[in-house]
Computed example of a mutant assay.
Amino acid sequence: MCITAGDLGGQAFSAGLVDEVVMDVAPVVLGEGVRFFGAHTGTVLLEDPDAVVRGDRVLHLHDTVRR
């Protein structure tokens, strides 16, 4: 199952339901910024990325959540 970032993703992190994080990082700042996982304030440790793909002005990352 896939979920998005924002409050829904933060709730899934808080409930311990997230096993993997796939993120696309681009060098753009939009406005003042928004917390990527909404109101989630806990610490989530990720393993080193097991897949890193470099694109044109974007970096695609795939991480596993450390348990």
Rank of each mutant, 00 (worst) to 15 (best):
G10V: 02
A26P: 02
S14R: 03
G31L: 00
L17K: 14
A15F: 03
I3A: 09
R54A: 14
D48F: 06
L30R: 13
D56W: 08
R66A: 14
A15Y: 02
V22E: 11
G42N: 04
P49G: 05
A5M: 07
E47M: 10
T4D: 12
E47A: 15
G9Y: 01
V34Y: 05
A15R: 07
G42S: 03
V29P: 04
G42L: 02
L59T: 15
A12Y: 02
V52T: 07
A39D: 06
G33H: 00
A26G: 12
H40W: 04
A5F: 06
D24V: 12
M23K: 10
M1V: 13
R57K: 14
V29Y: 06
V29G: 06
A51W: 00
G10S: 03
D7K: 12
L17M: 09
L8I: 14
G10D: 03
V58N: 06
R35L: 10
G55W: 00
V65F: 03
L45E: 14
H40N: 09
L45K: 15
D19E: 08
V28H: 07
A26N: 09
G42C: 03
A15N: 13
V21T: 00
E20Y: 09
T4P: 06
L45A: 14
L61Y: 04
G38N: 01
S14T: 09
V58L: 12
R54S: 13
L45T: 15
L30S: 12
V29F: 07
V21N: 01
V25P: 02
T41Y: 05
V65E: 02
T64V: 13
G55E: 04
P49S: 04
F36G: 07
G33A: 03
L45H: 15
T43P: 03
V58K: 07
L8Q: 11
V29I: 15
E20H: 11
V44S: 02
F37K: 00
A12P: 00
H40P: 03
M23W: 12
L30T: 12
V25A: 07
D48K: 15
D24A: 07
F36P: 11
R67P: 02
V18T: 04
E47L: 04
T4W: 05
G55C: 03
V44A: 01
L30V: 15
G38E: 02
R54L: 14
D24Y: 09
A5L: 05
T64K: 14
S14K: 01
T41M: 10
V21C: 04
D19R: 10
A39C: 08
D24M: 10
Q11C: 05
R67T: 09
V58H: 10
